[in-house]
Design a protein around this nucleic acid. Structure first.
Lengths: 197, 197
DNA sequence: TGATTTCCGTAACGATCCCTATATAAAGCT
DNA sequence: AGCTTTATATAGGGATCGTTACGGAAATCA
């Protein structure tokens, strides 16, 4: 089969990015060598350097691609119901046990890249933008039922789910679904601080 | 000055552990080489291998030492006031900008070791125990004002603070103190799910 | 005080790692 | 069909890493 250069290049880039996501989630940024990353994509290190310049360039590109593909899948399942409890449950379930087709360990990759961004100028702004997008997307999905700022609630939601998943990953019994849902409900209905004024 | 072997050994161990905490927070587990770790403690790699066997042994020892020294400092400042708002504010402030004497980047170290534990059998149980201790200590401090499980609220508190600090570290303007405190208040007073039954 | 043990410094090895320079094969062009 | 360009493979260098083997000085013991 004949394929154009552009097709070949695009496919290689795609393979490299996907393999990077999976392997880094599994082994960490430092634990995934350039050769291993290329190998996982059925290419060689030469392809990585031709596409991204260096290892950091691959990571930055990985962040850029992820930036866009965040909120869509979440929103679909979220809006399948009208009941608030079921909605929050869907949100939480999606977070702690993502659909098996998606890379199982994307939360690990998230932490890995966050940590990388904390120490790397170039990556920091990208990860920050990614979180900003996530907040906005979730805020739009929640569409501000109360007078409180939707983006504020979104930030709290994301924070709570990340923190709970961290604890649960180490000890699955430490965090029950009921606890998580109760927390989300409480945050969703936060009132102005001065209820008693 | 004459010093006994035990004193010398104990001091070396102490120096190695403290230097490890600081350097790993700064560079990450993989980024802090054994020689660099020893250097930061004014020792050489030989000392590390004599004390801990290998690099992983040093990390495990670091986790064990940390396990104990968690909740005490928090509790003191927390109980300085009776007002709930001021208490939560102290908790949050302590988390996002720890006292300058303590290693500034201990939250980074926390993430670093959590990520390490996710991929390492031997470390996982220790970090899990550490989180369990943190939950219990905070639960005891909150001393269950409502009928809800104090440990449940503690888990939610920790989760929220971790997640908010992650977002704030990338973008200090993303999370205001008011948002954080509103979230803590909401979680503190979570009622049973069925308020309407 | 001489012998022994303990603690840690020193030196070096093999394995990896990131990256560069160059080769190769396919596609595009005329 | 030749010539050029592009995309990736190949080979290898220089640096760094974790680890081990051994040496030497101080403390302990007799």
């Amino acid at each position: 089969m004949r394929r154009s250069q552009d097709q070949r290049k695009a496919e290689t880039r795609q393979r490299l990015l996907q393999a990077a996501g999976e392997l880094i989630a599994e082994r960490g940024v430092a634990g995934a060598s350039v050769d291993a990353l290329a190998d996982a994509a059925d290419r060689t290190s030469g392809a990585i350097y031709a596409h991204f310049g260096d290892k950091e360039g691959l990571l930055v590109a990985l962040l850029d691609e992820w930036k866009d593909a965040t909120g869509d899948a979440v929103r679909a399942e979220y809006e399948a119901t009208d009941d608030e409890g079921a909605r929050f449950a869907a949100l939480w379930r999606n977070f702690v046990s993502p659909p098996p087709n998606a890379s199982d360990a994307w939360v690990l990759l998230e932490h890995e890249l966050w940590l990388y961004a904390c120490r790397n100028e170039r990556a920091r702004s990208r990860v920050a933008a990614r979180y900003d997008d996530a907040r906005r997307a979730l805020a739009q999905t929640l569409h501000a039922s109360d007078g409180t700022s939707a983006e504020e609630v979104a930030a709290l939601f994301i924070a709570l789910m990340i923190g709970l998943e961290m604890q649960r990953r180490l000890d699955p019994d430490a965090i029950t679904d009921e606890t998580a849902l109760a927390g989300l409900r409480a945050l969703a209905h936060l009132r102005q601080p001065a209820e008693n004024v």
